[in-house]
Amino acid sequence: MLGFDLTYFEAKYQVSEAVCQVIGPVTPQGFADYCPRFVQGTFTTIEILVLCCLIGLIIAVPMALARVSSNRLFSVPAYIYIYVFRGTPLLVQLFLFYYGLGQFEVFRESFLWPYLRDSWWMGIIVLSINTSAYVAEILRGGIVSVPQGQIEAGRAAGMSGSLLYRRIILPQAFRIAWPAYGNEVILMLKASALTSTITVMDLMGQTRTIFSRSYDLEIFGYAAVLYFAMAFILTYLFRITERYLNRHMAYR
């Protein structure tokens, strides 16, 4: 685990150095001085974002299905989960999980501790849970907006419940939810900056560390540009995939 970590850290460091060799000369001095740190931080931010979106989505699908279920045994807990995690600030959740749970002996002796002791993992876990609640709500919106007639048609054709979900409801729910999901991913990109408060060295963590040395406001400016660029690229990616998902609706 740690061995892998160190090799990985090393690789990240090497890549950052290489990137900075190339872009260093064309960037402003204030950026070039700390370039490897900015690039490393950007990598970490992307890492966190990708993992959280994946894990969040994996939790969100069953959660959304439970939420729309007619069985109260499923729908009530799902409703509470979604409401609580959407209804409290992410920063509080991060502190509660990171500093709060660390207080308990039971927790520190569990087999999960090697992961949970690491702020990077803890950040990923909390962000994933948080985003899963938002995504579940988005998916729920998608599911309930699938026209009732299609579901009836599916049933009339003899489809079972699960087949109906796999073939008819979920694919369309995803398509309907896609733009809202894109927004959520960008919100996540921005929210990931909060992991710097639990010692994660993401772009924000690096930025704040650099700033604490020099107190130059331009440091924040460079971070803003990097975040903006990432958000811009994500928006673009979501827009082209949206066009792809809706290709059957084109030219009508």
Binding site: Q103, R108, T209
Partner: peptide, 27 residues
């Protein structure tokens, strides 16, 4: 950061008290 970065995992906290808390929890 200047002397041990690369050799150890450097964890930087916003507050000293948070660092104590994390040493107690074994992080």
């Amino acid at each position: 950061e200047d002397n041990l970065a690369g050799k150890v995992q450097v964890k930087l906290y916003d507050k000293q008290t948070a660092a104590y808390a994390d040493m107690q929890s074994g992080r």
